[in-house]
Simulated assay, not measured.
Amino acid sequence: MVDDLLIFRHIVDLTIKLTDILETFPRKYKFTLGDRLMDFALTLEADAAFMKRYSVDKTKYGKCANKFAYDYYLFKSVFRIVVEKKLVELKRITEIVVLMEKLRKFLE
């Protein structure tokens, strides 16, 4: 089962870093790609909360874990577009990738 504190810490860190990054997004992408990234980050937090809530019910937990995985991969896809469009500095990309890797470990 999920280490509740750790997953939430990683998601909060991700959201904070995204907030900083989105301040520098070109207006053209801020309300499309930027909003999608933030929405997915907040959805991941909600998914983790449901995983915690249903940690004793393996069926419901499994459904929540699947949703977390689905939302994680959607976030990853949008972030890849951001990287390909070079909307983020390399240092910021690295910070996000490190946090994404920490979250990915919860999918295993």
Score class of each variant (00 low, 15 high):
3 D>T: 04
4 D>K: 13
7 I>R: 09
8 F>V: 06
8 F>S: 14
8 F>W: 11
10 H>T: 10
10 H>M: 11
11 I>V: 09
12 V>W: 08
13 D>M: 13
13 D>K: 14
14 L>H: 13
14 L>S: 10
15 T>M: 07
17 K>I: 03
17 K>P: 02
18 L>N: 10
19 T>P: 00
20 D>E: 14
21 I>S: 06
21 I>P: 02
21 I>V: 06
22 L>T: 01
22 L>N: 05
22 L>G: 01
23 E>N: 12
23 E>T: 07
23 E>H: 10
24 T>V: 04
24 T>H: 15
24 T>Q: 15
25 F>Q: 11
25 F>I: 03
26 P>Y: 08
26 P>L: 11
26 P>Q: 15
28 K>Q: 07
29 Y>G: 00
30 K>A: 07
32 T>C: 00
32 T>V: 00
34 G>P: 02
35 D>H: 07
35 D>S: 09
36 R>F: 05
38 M>V: 13
39 D>H: 14
39 D>C: 10
39 D>R: 15
39 D>S: 15
41 A>L: 04
42 L>M: 07
43 T>W: 00
43 T>I: 11
45 E>G: 12
45 E>N: 11
45 E>C: 05
46 A>I: 05
46 A>K: 12
49 A>F: 05
49 A>N: 10
50 F>S: 12
52 K>E: 04
55 S>L: 02
55 S>R: 12
56 V>W: 06
57 D>M: 01
58 K>R: 10
59 T>W: 13
59 T>Y: 13
60 K>Q: 13
61 Y>V: 01
61 Y>R: 10
62 G>M: 06
63 K>D: 02
64 C>K: 08
66 N>M: 03
67 K>F: 01
68 F>C: 05
69 A>D: 14
71 D>A: 09
72 Y>F: 15
72 Y>Q: 06
73 Y>A: 08
73 Y>S: 12
74 L>D: 15
74 L>H: 15
74 L>F: 12
75 F>K: 08
75 F>A: 13
78 V>F: 06
78 V>P: 02
79 F>A: 04
79 F>P: 01
81 I>L: 12
82 V>W: 05
83 V>F: 01
83 V>N: 04
84 E>P: 02
85 K>F: 12
85 K>N: 14
89 E>A: 15
89 E>Y: 13
90 L>V: 11
90 L>W: 10
92 R>C: 13
94 T>A: 10
96 I>Y: 00
97 V>P: 00
98 V>N: 09
98 V>K: 10
100 M>G: 11
101 E>I: 00
101 E>D: 07
103 L>G: 01
104 R>C: 02
106 F>H: 05
106 F>C: 05
106 F>K: 06
106 F>V: 04
107 L>N: 07
108 E>F: 01
